[in-house]
Amino acid sequence: MTAAPIDVPADAQSWLFEATDICKNFGNVQALRRATLRVAVGEVVGLVGDNGAGKSTLIKTISGVQPADSGSFAFEGREVEIHGPADAANLGLAFVYQDLALCDNLDVVANLFLGREIAGRGPFKRLKGVEMHARTRALLDSVGVRTLQSLRTEVGGLSGGQRQAIAIARAMIGEPQLLVLDEPTAALGVTQTEQVLQLIRRLKAAGHGVILISHNMADVMQVCDRVTVLHLGSNAGDFPCLPEARGDIIAAITGINAVAPEGSVA
């Protein structure tokens, strides 16, 4: 009830990644109005908000899939530019999208290394299939997938949980500094959800930053350190992930007693 939004210092040195004053319009629709999101090293930040609050749009500006109209990004304190997915990948940002972004006609190995294949030099860039295959097995073990009989099966034929695990394992390739998970548990059962949450804790312990987008407040409260709330495309406050803040977080999500969003239409 009384837990006020916490102050997030704008100039701290320890920020791993900062997206500041991001604006994004789709025609006349202002999807993001100076939205700001920051993650520290070893911090798990929950990004929550109602449907249409701009969570996915904000993530897409960070991943470069839909570049921002204005605003700035900083990585480890340096200002950086993100114009496309390759820029984000080069910074060490990894994303697991809600729709997983898997290619159903390719097998598990091909999907895991999609876009960052292990290959020889030279103009032909010959794929090193055996090496990718061996590393796939190790990666899947690390995210707790042991139910796949063959890594040669097409991803389109796998179960929802297996596909989710493959998408997460893919994001883990190249040891990303920051992992962004968009509704990672929405399609999962109890055991698999727990595996994903466990994985997030492991990442945090290893000093990675994590952004977790979720509608599931229970998941968010379990693993997050801090919650950033979006409402109608702008920030509606940052809250500590404490049981007593839960009511305030939900109030901020729904817009009741909203902390007047900067620049919002009155």
Partner: peptide
Amino acid sequence: GGTESARRVGI
């Protein structure tokens, strides 16, 4: 097999 997926992974 999946244009959008390919785009998302940076291809």
